[in-house]
Amino acid sequence: MSKLPRAAELGLIRCHVCALVCRDTQAPGAACPRCGARLHRRKSASYSRTAALLLAAFILYIPANLLPIMRTASIGEVDDNTIISGVVELWVKGAPDLAIIVFTASIMVPMLKFLVLGLLLVCGKCGSNWAQHQRARLYRLVEFVGYWSMLDVFVVALLTALVRFSVFSSVEPLPGVVFFGLTVVLTMLASMSFDPRLIWDCGCDDE
């Protein structure tokens, strides 16, 4: 394969909003002639922003898992559910397929995001060109599955609205669900502020 030219080498910039190919004038604050967005070769402060958002998400992820996300109350019986106990309940109640989906969305996906973005940050900071293709694929996976973690938040919201039989049975949201919702939003922001082009900036290893 012949060497593939990169935009930075040719003095070009891709507008991140409208995808127009622009000449890199090196001027500070240059704007895209078509949509007016500020041009930048890489997302600004990508590493520090991603790291900060990821850290914040991780801090919120701890109470999201430890605190109960919803309380089900029926006559004389109060039961607080955490994320993991919700999964176990689904598994026991005879819906193992859905239990796997909820486990994936609520536990696997956030963990995957922490691990993958953490790995991308470390590799990028070290200037390593190790496994670039796999890292690029991991980033796309994280971008693609990221928002599915909101599943549990929506389930709690729906059950709260539905189960309203006064003293007989009711469901109320508990603080865990708020932390979890915020975790998801922060991890989404973190993966958006990571610039995948940084994976390829430490020398491209084209076969």
Partner: peptide
């Protein structure tokens, strides 16, 4: 996130089915 909500509805149905 409408498509995630769709899946959430299915999960809610299965969870509620045990009691209602």
């Amino acid at each position: 996130m409408s498509e995630v909500f769709m899946l959430g509805v299915l999960v809610a149905i299965v969870k509620a089915r045990a009691y209602f």
